[in-house]
Amino acid sequence: MPDTSTYSRRPDLTDAAGERTLIIACGALAREIGTLMGQTAMGSVALKCLPAQLHNTPDRIPDAVREAVLAARETYARVLVGYADCGTGGRLDRVCQELGVERIEGPHCYSFFSGNDAFLARADEEFTSFYLTDFLARQFDSMVIRSLGLDRHPELRDAYFGHYEKLVYLAQTDDDVLTARAEAAAERLGLAFERRRVGFGDLTAFVEKASEPLPLSS
């Protein structure tokens, strides 16, 4: 599946070699970035997604991004990184700085989907909230239940989620099926449920940046 494993989307139209842009992104964003690319004429932009499961081992994200950026340098003149910090504790920022590439701002996708400023404004009142995106609503069993072993040991639910009070579904789309899945997830975790339609948030401007003309070489 494109949103859980390495995924590549080549541009429909390509410029000469060395004049294209590549977005290297988390597999959990494949559908959303692909949608945004489809809404804009982005013929010289390509997308490569790394496995979404890296979020279960965030210490591996910086090295995975480094490897992907270095491999892309032979083909692409510009590389953008579609990852927030994602639990790397600043290590991803250090890799991006070292390689001279830019990542999307924010500590995690919940923040940039909400809009980083809006998410920060709610932070104090929502520190006991557990968040789902469209991707996580779709992949809740594999990314949450099975990855935490709750399918084998449901008695661990309170150990993992006992300090949460509410599940907030940050919806990118208006999808009744995903809403039902998110609400079922909240019930399974014993949490109150809230759906908040946030759309793509700050991800939109980040993807649009990829279509901007490259600066002229000096």
Rank of each mutant, 00 (worst) to 15 (best):
R146D: 06
G199C: 01
D151Q: 10
F161G: 03
F193L: 04
E165I: 01
Q172C: 11
D134V: 07
A159N: 05
E105I: 15
F140E: 04
E208W: 07
V168S: 03
L36E: 02
I145K: 11
A52T: 14
R31M: 13
R91W: 08
L120K: 15
D15R: 09
R66D: 10
L150H: 01
F206D: 00
L132F: 02
A185S: 10
T179K: 01
T173W: 06
H108Q: 01
A171F: 02
G89Y: 15
A123H: 01
M1D: 15
M37V: 07
S218V: 08
D3V: 15
G201R: 00
P107Y: 01
K48R: 08
L120R: 15
A84Y: 10
L50D: 05
I61R: 08
R103T: 03
T21G: 02
C96H: 09
Q39V: 13
A118C: 01
A159E: 06
Y164Q: 06
D175M: 07
V81T: 13
L120T: 13
E19W: 10
V144R: 08
R188Y: 09
E194T: 05
D93P: 11
P2Y: 09
M143A: 08
R188I: 07
D141F: 12
D15Q: 13
V95H: 06
R31K: 13
A185V: 12
G149W: 01
I33F: 06
N56F: 11
G89H: 15
E183S: 05
K48D: 06
P154L: 03
R146E: 05
G199E: 00
Q39K: 14
T40N: 14
E102S: 12
A28M: 14
A64R: 12
K209E: 01
T75G: 07
G162L: 05
C49H: 01
A118Q: 06
A121C: 11
Y7D: 10
H153G: 14
A52G: 11
Y164M: 06
A180L: 14
E187I: 03
F112S: 07
T128F: 05
Y83G: 04
A77E: 09
V207T: 00
I23D: 04
S8I: 11
L170H: 03
R9W: 07
T204D: 07
R66N: 08
A46M: 02
P11K: 08
R157E: 09
E74I: 15
